[in-house]
Design a protein around this nucleic acid. Structure first.
Lengths: 256, 256
DNA sequence: CTGACAATTCTTGTATACAGTTGTAAATCG
DNA sequence: CGATTTACAACTGTATACAAGAATTGTCAG
């Protein structure tokens, strides 16, 4: 059951993990040389890694410029959530249809782990487990393709949370997960779907609707929101803001 | 509205088209240098093309052997159809939610084109248009991600049809498409979904349930089905067939 | 004639080289 | 002093070279 992954796959996993856990904030530059150094491989392979991650939507790699961790726009974020809702609804249906006793035990164990991480205050672990809850469900649905798609959107949601969400993200989620497990166990598809929809709704709400936070990231969105407010309150002098030419903060790019 | 695509993208489109239109039957070998020759690019770029197509499920590229056009298994085929149903249901919902008058005209025009191709007996065009009907709907749903996923499964269905389906595939489909358009135009989501589901069901039926056909492709599956029949009818002497070690037919690989 | 083993030929995996672009800071001009 | 141009450094795009792994063919023993 242990498959020997290629070096490219390993690097993919590593980078993916780093992005998902927000160790590399959205917009971080990912020069091919540098990655090659760190992973001990040539640019040829790094390139494959980046292409893969780009197809998963975790990396922006515009034609002739340096790749960066992705910065989904608000519109993209909404699309992703819309897609995720569709996928998770279907997953719930499929999991119930193919229910097996071990699923209950496994899921409950997972939720317990989430609870433990939350109480221990391990934010990083907590975030990871919250995501894994959903990918686990995806595995139980027994459809590789849906599982792949779900994995993709779940990853991307981490990015969205990092960009637009509040820092303390995965708090009450644990209880909602518990409710979902209960509904699944009861085999009540309608209820499970309802709860799942509500769960995703509240995640999306936390992620998108309370906007700014996130210490000045996505200046453009923030400013345009302020502009709207100004325009609505009378001042007509807002007009087009001279668009900022580059990321305003953090000449980051990994620690050197 | 014309975006300058890179050479890699062009090659991707070309190969994709060739596979979808079944000009390259499932299992055809795709050696990197040969493709490089034909596309006038180095293996480096061909490799990117193949990776892309592999991620779309149109190409099998196992680690150290030459890539081939994909040969989905029956199980995979079922997964793909299951996923496609989910996607098309959602697409119908979204299209109705965002309905615009021009959609009706556009779709009806498309259906007319399908009808024309069918009557003219242009099989290749007919197949392509039948697929495009669905990807058009995908575009109208206004969700890039769903559109991408839908495009992927629709392409793959062409492969499945090539592998397991009857030759005369897209016959009555035109009428079903017409019905779908009518339901969309009426804004009746439930009806539209029902018709779409039925439509996909019949496509799947044509593709999977009548099995063999397809002139000896997937010899293994065919033989194992025959073995079953023999075993059931009394002869016990069937046993394991010595598994054929390679594709029995067509040393094809493009014309040289 | 069958099946195994070896030599040869194809193909792929990976690194590297070089050319072409882009970003940026210094230099120049109004 | 601010706007433009120029020059340089940082990166990416693509081809090619070479090593290593499959596939195939030929040969020979049974």
């Amino acid at each position: 059951m242990s498959k020997k992954s290629s070096r490219v796959d390993l690097a993919c996993q590593a980078l993916r993990q780093a992005i998902i856990e927000q160790a590399l904030p959205p917009g971080t530059k990912l020069p091919e040389d540098e990655l090659g150094m760190r992973f001990g491989m040539s640019r040829t392979l790094v390139r494959e890694v980046l292409a893969q991650l780009q197809s998963e939507g975790l990396v922006d790699a515009p034609p002739r410029r340096t790749a960066t961790t992705a910065r989904p726009t608000l519109d993209q974020a909404k699309e992703i959530f819309e897609t995720r809702r569709m996928l998770e609804r279907e997953v719930v249906r499929l999991v119930i249809a193919r229910w097996q006793p071990r699923f209950g035990a496994e899921l409950e164990g997972h939720v317990r782990a989430e609870e433990a991480a939350r109480q221990a205050g391990e934010a990083r672990v907590s975030i990871r487990l919250a995501g894994e809850f959903h990918t686990r469900l995806g595995e139980m649905a027994g459809n590789t393709l849906i599982r792949r798609y779900l994995g993709e959107v779940v990853s991307r949601c981490s990015l969205i949370l990092a960009l637009y969400g509040r820092p303390h993200s995965a708090d009450c989620a644990v209880n909602e997960h518990r409710e979902i497990v209960a509904a699944l166990r009861a085999g009540n598809a309608d209820a499970a779907i309802r709860i799942m929809d509500h769960h995703l709704g509240s995640v999306e709400q936390r992620a998108l609707l309370d906007g700014d936070s996130a210490a000045g990231f996505d200046l453009g969105a923030v400013l345009s929101r302020y502009s709207e407010a100004l325009a609505a309150s009378g001042s007509t002098k807002v007009a087009r803001l001279p668009k900022p030419k580059a990321l305003p903060k953090s000449k980051a790019r990994g620690k050197r």
